[in-house]
Nucleic acid binder design. Structure first.
Lengths: 337, 337
DNA sequence: CTGTTAGCGCCTTCAG
DNA sequence: CTGAAGGCGCTAACAG
């Protein structure tokens, strides 16, 4: 709890000199610098950032707002973001919005209140625009990750949703699947829309049978895949999809967990594919055939863009970085006749 | 960027009155409160926490220092911790120490500098005591998670390492395994030691064959399991272990990934078990037989203890919470003759 | 190379 | 119920 004055007194200098030593500012006589450093060490003095921030208007605090760290996709983003932030001397406040707009609002408000220098976020949906407006009003730089916002111009990092979807559909198609179901999230989320559009496009382009019935939309936070499975179970084998495309990993895990409970086997009865690996680390015997996005890079590069913008190193135009996806074929899909 | 004075001016009151409204302090005439609230809204005024902290000495900022969020065990801890923090109106700064003492020191120093109200941490090892001393000196409450520190009295949450190890060993024993290898981390980590002790104890109690050779110790951040696998490969089938106990999930994943590359099959050639699930979420077709610890609860309860202590709701004595572990039998182990 | 003065935005204390 | 003065810990701006 020593203050700069305690150090000053002990080193027989003014507080200003101590301040200069701390921030290795302008020239200081070697002998006094040594004396000050000694006093700092002896008193275990650590500068008070709140006081510094009050003057400098910056905090070296960044906010990372994602929907759920427990989702390995976001876990990797968080890790990447923290790595870059640490490299650049920033700390990260992290929060989980759980796809909930009110939670998002409250987090953003308290982040602003904290005087964060910038924010890296995955908006919960298009309504998030009202939250983004708070950032804009307070002139707080932000970078979007994984999801864009209709009508909002900003720096953004995301994956190629259309191409990724196509890769998944191609894989299924090549393996003989024609009736392909789709389990997805709310259409207020940009990537959900993009994946959905690409799914429909593929069906159209390849003249596949289409039945609205096999498209199931649910909340990303409270998934209700059971009702979909019941639908599957009620249908005859000829009518029902032989494969299902899931918008994300959590949906896929939930779906397959439930299918197992209900006696539907993957991939023997139905193949399942999804976006994003459900594991944060490489696992032996992984199950899902997925299209993987470089989540770590999303976080790392997103954070880099953010810091560049904060430090005035980016131009006026906004940057968009789109990463390629990678198809990884594993055990959740199988070739049919 | 409106300040309390801007609001005051607009509402025709003094700054003090605005302050009272913000902190719903002592009685204020309804009409003036309304006027102030209107002004606040009109100006989009958000109080400056740095300024508040300078006076109040608290920040409602907590620090979560773990070794690596990407490890699902810590991911769950982080989620639990954030949930409780949010419930109680605190925000979380999170950092990854990567089992690195210097990184840990620097994170702790900057957390102190930020004026965090408390810290929830997994120390990287017994040397972390020097870092803990910084917290103690600055009277910052902290709670240890998963790892204790020799000679440090503090609140702590962890799993029952001895019993967990015993469950794993029992399972292997019941499945006919007698020569059981051990892949582990540095002994400066309390839970590594405890698991190692329990492993040796089990061998002793059951008069199993023991060969120092089959115990392999490596760095938890940069695992070197390949050399161990070479050892396995060089040995005759009669000599080498039929099962391996790994101190943690990452070690096990790395080991098995490498074994696969080198042509050793799990569980056909060798069974493998470990502490902690390698998945943050329930997965269909999970591979590892593990003893699972309630990581989410570690974070949630640990955070609760921390906040209780910060808010003066815990007694003088330190609390230790020990959670039971749960054996989950899956595909990485198999019965032998 | 070093010190003095003033003030960042807010709240505590004390008046009224 | 409301306001004025002062200061939290630090640094910018200006001396010297």
């Amino acid at each position: 709890m020593a203050t700069i004055y305690d150090v000053a007194k002990r080193a027989n200098v003014s507080a200003m000199t101590v301040s200069r030593v701390i921030n290795n500012g302008s020239s200081i006589k070697e002998s006094t610098r040594l004396r000050v450093e000694k006093a700092i060490k002896e008193l275990d003095y650590i500068p008070n950032r709140s006081a510094q921030s009050l003057i400098s208007k910056d905090t070296k605090l960044l906010s990372l707002l994602i929907t759920d760290v427990a989702n390995p996709f976001f876990t990797s983003i968080a890790r990447g973001a923290e790595d870059k932030a640490h490299e650049k001397g920033y700390q990260l406040v992290f929060s989980n919005s759980d796809e909930n707009i009110e939670k998002e609002t409250s987090y953003i408000r308290s982040a602003v209140s904290r005087g964060i220098d910038g924010m890296l976020l995955t908006p919960s949906g298009d309504f998030s625009i009202q939250n983004i407006n708070i950032l804009t009003k307070y002139k707080i730089p932000f970078v979007l990750v994984d999801r864009s916002l209709k009508g909002i111009e900003s720096d953004i990092v995301h994956g190629d949703n259309s191409d990724g979807t196509k890769k998944l559909m191609d894989h299924l198609f090549e393996n003989g699947h024609r009736t392909i179901g789709f389990v997805t999230g709310p259409s207020s989320i940009s990537n959900v829309r993009e994946r959905g559009d690409a799914y429909k496009q593929f069906i159209k382009d390849n003249k596949l049978p289409f039945n609205e019935k096999w498209t199931f939309q649910t909340d990303l936070a409270r998934m209700q895949t059971l009702s979909y499975i019941n639908l599957l179970l009620e249908a005859s084998k000829e009518d029902r999809p032989t494969a299902i495309l899931c918008s994300n990993n959590f949906l896929a895990a939930d779906l397959v967990n439930n299918m197992n409970k209900m006696g539907l086997h993957v991939p023997d009865d139905i193949s399942v594919v999804c976006f994003d690996d459900p594991h944060a680390i490489q696992m032996p015997n992984s199950f899902f055939t997925v299209v993987n996005q470089p989540a770590y890079k999303f976080g790392y590069t997103g954070m880099e863009m953010l810091i560049d913008r904060i430090e005035g190193k980016s131009g006026k135009e906004h940057k968009e970085i789109v990463y390629d996806t990678e198809l990884i074929i594993r055990q959740s899909t199988k070739k049919i006749n």
